[in-house]
């Protein structure tokens, strides 16, 4: 069986498994009151499963860890209004990891992040997961929606595998010396899919990056990712980068308004 057919069948199988999984119900106030809470500074080792309520920002500090078991559903409370003095990096509700995060979803029992309400006019309902100087993190089989950035890695190199990231403004951002493994993810229906910024070198393997209003994958002049077997389609600009050599084989980059946009490094513009 050829590789593409195998991959297609795998996606199909994954989709069927998820479709068969019971859909989370919409919790009421009483339900939320009885759930485990993910919020505030959570020091030490935290392991959560089942239904979890995230009423506000959560920080896993350096040296601490958070594990989310297979099938965990995290109900995220969007900030009632844009916070004036954000505690951490975002004005919206955020999960900030400065320690270690393990999301142990499986194809059959993914870990879901579900905002309890959607904001107006297509604005993100929450910030998403941010990793700053995180060590040893792993995000497997999560379903993340309606976030500003589903996964933002700053100086962090998590393994990001088999996730479905839909309807977020940005899918994944790797920046500032991050070199995450990003494989077998579906990143769809946002403003842009994956960014490699400020000296990051992720491995992007076997991802589907589709249907973004703007870029599928953007690589800035200082980043050096490895791109392999990604399907980039239905975006405005499929692959945007400065160094053509980084694009590798472009066979999976098709069906975008413009499949490849090569940028020219700016020469000093003298007035």
């Amino acid at each position: 069986m050829d590789l593409k057919l195998k991959r297609g069948l795998l996606f199909l199988l994954g989709g069927l498994l998820v479709a068969c999984a019971p859909l989370p119900r919409n919790p009421g106030a009483d339900d939320l009151a009885h759930m485990r809470i993910l919020s505030g500074v959570m020091s030490g080792r935290t392991v959560l499963g089942g239904e979890v309520y995230m009423p506000g920002d959560a920080l896993i500090p350096s040296g601490s860890s958070l594990r989310l078991r297979p099938g965990t559903i995290v109900y995220v409370q969007p900030a009632e209004s844009t916070k004036i003095d954000p505690e951490y990096l975002s004005s919206a509700t955020e999960l900030l990891i400065r320690g270690t995060l393990w999301i142990d979803g499986t194809a059959r029992h993914p870990v879901r992040f579900i905002p309890l309400s959607r904001s107006v006019a297509g604005e993100p309902a929450w910030a998403g997961i941010t990793l700053v100087d995180s060590v040893g993190s792993r995000i497997d089989q999560a379903r993340i929606e309606y976030a500003e950035t589903a996964i933002l890695a700053i100086g962090s190199s998590p393994e990001i595998r088999g996730n479905q990231l839909r309807n977020n403004r940005y899918g994944i951002i790797a920046q500032q010396g991050s070199f995450p493994l990003i494989s077998n993810n579906v990143v769809e229906h946002g403003e842009a899919g994956i960014f490699c910024w400020l000296g990051s070198s992720p491995q992007l393997i076997d991802n589907r990056v589709a249907d973004h209003v703007e870029e599928g994958i953007f690589i800035d002049a200082s980043s050096r990712p490895l791109l392999q077997d990604n399907q980039v389609t239905g975006n405005d600009l499929g692959l945007v980068l400065y160094d053509r050599r980084l694009a590798g084989n472009l066979s999976g980059v098709s069906g975008n308004r413009e499949d490849l946009r090569l940028l020219t490094p700016d020469r000093e513009q003298s007035p």
Binding site: E215, L237, L263, T264, R267
Partner: peptide, 8 residues
């Protein structure tokens, strides 16, 4: 303004 040499 001098608006030149930007990316996209």
């Amino acid at each position: 303004n001098l608006l030149a040499g930007n990316g996209e």
